[in-house]
Amino acid sequence: MEPLIRIEDVSHVFRGGRRSGVHALDAIDLEIAENEFVVLVGRSGCGKSTLLRIVAGLLRATQGTVSLADEVVTSPRPDVSLMFQRSALLPWRSVFDNVMLPVEILKLDKTLHRVKAEALLRLTGLDEFSESRPYELSGGMQQRVALCRALIHDPDVLLMDEPFAALDALTREDLSLELQRIWNEHRKTILFVTHSIQEALLLADRIVVMSPRPGRIASILELKTPRPRSLGVDATDELNDVSARLHELLFARDLTIEAEPAAGAAAARDS
């Protein structure tokens, strides 16, 4: 099938205070099919957010191109939606008006989307809070509002940068399940960054593991286990295998470093 998002040979160097600059991404090649759920994992600082911002058109890669439905991405597009670690809600607007922000900015039909906003708030269990202010909500509820806002204009692509990272483990699992459910109802192409192996296992069709400095794709793991998935006792063999592989890939670098001074490695094992 023709891929929806095509990332070709993308490299990015941040020119900043340091003379050499920060080589954040190096020759990233990735194709994402329509309605595919791709999860990016990798250590802090390996360029996940940078890649996401390039795909979103917020940042121009120093080299290479990103194309979406065969068009080269040069600036933000209305059919792509972003969600961040912090909910980025406007504190002076009610929940409902926050959800309607994209409709106002993109000048879409208001009456039609009011109905949609109500439906989305109901879907995420927030219908009672539509007139509340963001600060009256818990962190998890705020992220739900941000999710509604990201979905209101029915984008084809959803880019999510650690959307649940600021939440406690329980809320986070709730929201991953909810995202699974929503994704089952309205299929979208999703590129999702996370630090949580669990989240990756629950959500992904493919898990892209990145390695740092410069950011490269270290490995791509496919998951075929049908949804809804669950971890723990009823996890499938495939999920267990991939989980093991992920641990191995993400900690591999550390093991080689710790293996050099024998005492250090022993201490790390004991702790």
């Binding site: 058109g57 917020l58 209305p78 792509v80 939606s81 972003l82 961040f84 912090r86 980025a88 900015i105």
Partner: peptide, 11 residues
């Protein structure tokens, strides 16, 4: 993040 948000909506 608010600036980035409205930028991403091509405001």
């Amino acid at each position: 993040e608010l600036v980035e948000l409205v930028r991403s909506l091509s405001a």
